[in-house]
């Protein structure tokens, strides 16, 4: 496919549009209204217009310090592939985190708050900020 050449500014604009789509767009492709509402509520709380799937991915995949030695990362239990099933440290399977495979994920605010509290404390030794929560959910809802 050939395309007309574009000027620098147009290309720049396109890049911005594309990345905006990557950040926000896929949420609307896989996540349902319930996840959208949860993410929107977090955005309102954080006073931002949206979150970054990229930042969420980096946070989710990273090794953190400050938490309990047994659990350095979200991937300790959820694995580095959110499309795959995870496993607790005792060996019980955990459904994939990706909303496309587990459509009921992130739809129950009480469950969500409970696990963010526990898991962030285990992994980081503190609560996750609203922005960290929003970024992670945006990432996992985009897959």
């Amino acid at each position: 496919m050939s395309r007309p050449r574009t000027s620098q500014t147009q290309r720049g604009l396109q890049a911005v549009l594309t990345s905006t789509f990557l950040l926000v767009g896929p949420t609307h492709l896989t996540a349902g209204p319930a996840q959208d509402a949860v993410i929107a509520a977090l955005a309102a709380e954080a006073g931002v217009s949206g979150f970054s799937a990229q930042t969420g991915k980096a946070f989710f995949q990273a090794s953190h310090s400050g938490g309990k030695p047994e659990t350095p990362s979200c991937t300790t239990c959820h694995t580095s592939d959110p499309l795959a099933a995870g496993r607790t440290r005792v060996g019980k399977p955990i459904e994939p985190m990706a909303v496309s495979l587990s459509p009921n994920r992130f739809t129950d605010p009480e469950k969500l708050a409970k696990w963010f509290r526990r898991n962030c404390n285990s992994v980081l030794g503190r609560e996750c900020t609203t922005t960290e929560q929003g970024d992670v959910l945006t990432y996992l809802s985009s897959l």
């Binding site: 309990k68 030695p69 047994e70 440290r89 409970k114 509290r117 526990r118 898991n119 404390n121 285990s122």
Partner: peptide, 11 residues
């Protein structure tokens, strides 16, 4: 429960 066998299992 917040220090449950190396994990936070708080309720």
């Amino acid at each position: 429960l917040p220090n449950h066998f190396g994990e936070d299992a708080s309720l």
